[in-house]
Design a protein around this nucleic acid. Sequence first.
DNA 1: GAGTGGTCTAGACCACGAG
DNA 2: TCGTGGTCTAGACCACTCA
Lengths: 242, 242
Amino acid sequence: MSRPVPSRRQTIADDLRHQISTGHFKAGDRLPSEAQLAAHYTVSTPTLRSALALLEGEGLVEKIHGSGNFVRHALRKITYVGGGDAEAIAPRGATVRTAQLQAHGHLADLLDVPPLSPLTEIIYVTHEAKAPHSLARIYIPGGLTPTDSPVGSSVPVTIATRFVDLRPPLAEIQERLSARLPTQEEAAILRISTSLAVLSLTRVATDVTGRVVEAALLVLPGDRADALFTTRVMAAERSAKK
Amino acid sequence: MSRPVPSRRQTIADDLRHQISTGHFKAGDRLPSEAQLAAHYTVSTPTLRSALALLEGEGLVEKIHGSGNFVRHALRKITYVGGGDAEAIAPRGATVRTAQLQAHGHLADLLDVPPLSPLTEIIYVTHEAKAPHSLARIYIPGGLTPTDSPVGSSVPVTIATRFVDLRPPLAEIQERLSARLPTQEEAAILRISTSLAVLSLTRVATDVTGRVVEAALLVLPGDRADALFTTRVMAAERSAKK
DNA sequence: GAGTGGTCTAGACCACGAG
DNA sequence: TCGTGGTCTAGACCACTCA
C-alpha cells in the first residue's frame, strides 16, 4: 500500500506528457535537445534520458539518433478484426517482399509440413501517413501458391481475401495472440522503441482436408493497434454445453 | 542494414540468459548481488543494472528490493481461450475482492449504462504455484447480479460459466485485445516488471435484448499467457461473402 | 564540423528487507 | 544494523545526421 515516491524521472515524464497533450509540443515537433531539457529540469542527462524512455515506451516520442527527439503523430487506432475478416488491416500503402525458402523448425511445425519443405514467404509492411503500421510475415506451403497469386503484385490484396475462392474450402482459422516487446529488427521496421509493447498474432488457416493453407505472423504496435474478436452465441451451442 | 554493435548491456544480458537457460542459475535462485556481478563483468553498476532490466522485461528475472535478483520460475504458458470458453483461465487459486460502486466515464461506456449507475465489481487474481497469473476486473450492472451469485463465495466460478443459465440468453461476446506495458499497480499485483508487456483484454458480453451483461478487463503477463481464438468457417458463410 | 543522441563510468546517497 | 537494490550525478567518449 505504499504511495509510490514520485521520482524525478516520473515527474519530468509527466510534465513532458502534459506539454505534449496540451499541444505545447505538437505532433512532428522536435523536442529541445536532451542537454537543454536536462538543464531546464536541472537533472543530469541520464536522468532526463530515462524520462524520455518512458515516453518512448508509450509511443509518444520517437528518438532519431543524431537528429533529436520527436513527438510522434497522433495515432489513429487500427483495429485488426479476427475471424478471417481481416479487411480492417487493409494497407493504404504497403511494401512487399517475397521469397522462396525452406521450412525450418518453428515454421515447419506451424504449417504442419516436413522440415525443409519449400514455402513462399510474403512480407507486408503496411503504412499509414508515412508511418509503418504493421508487419506481417505470411508463409504459404509450396505447391499451394497459385501462379496468379498476388506475389509481386504492386497492389497487394488484403490478407484474407485470398481465401474466398480457395479450391479446397477453408475450414478453420486459428489466431493466437500474445504481448511482448519487439525484437530489434521489428522495432526498426516499425520505427518504434524496443520498449513499446507489440501485439503478436499468429494465424493459421486450415482447409477442410485439414491441411494448413497459410500461416501468418503479424506484429502490431501496441500503441496504435488492437484486435477485435466477436463471437455470436447460437442457441444450439448454448444448450449443447454441459 | 547496420549490424547492431553488441553493447556491454546486451553481452551481459546474453551471458546471464545463457547461464539461466543452461541451469547454472536455477529457478528461484538468487543471483549474485549487483555489485558482485558488476565486478565480475568489470562494468559499472548502472550498466549491469541495465542488463538486468532486459532480463526483467523478458520475465526471466524478478527484482526484490532489499533482497536481490531472483530467477523466476519456469513459466507454464496459460492460454486464454476466447469466444466464451474461458475455462482455460480457471484459477487454481484466486483471491477475490468485490465492491459496489458507481459507473464512471469509461465503465459507463463499456456497460452502456448511464453514468453513476450502480454496478458490482469483482476482482480476481488467479495464482499458480504462489505466483500471480492473471488479473481480472469484472463489472456487472446493478440489478443484474443475482443474490445467489458467486460474489463472496470462497470458490469462485470460472469466468464464463455464469452465463450458461443466464435468463435472457447470451447473444454476443466481444473481445478486444491490446498489448501494452502494465501500470505500476498492475505490475505490483502480478509481481512483474513494469517493462514486461501485458496482454490487455476487454470483454463485453451482451444478451439477446442487446443489454450488456458483463464487462471484464483482463490483464495477462505477456511472458506466460497468450490468447487463442478459433473460428470455424461455415460453408454458408463462405458463399455469403461477396 | 557542429550538434545530436548512445553508451558507459565511478562514484554518492536513499529506501527497503531480514536478522 | 547491514546488505541489498533504487535513484541520481557530472562528467567522458563514441556514433550518427545534416549542412
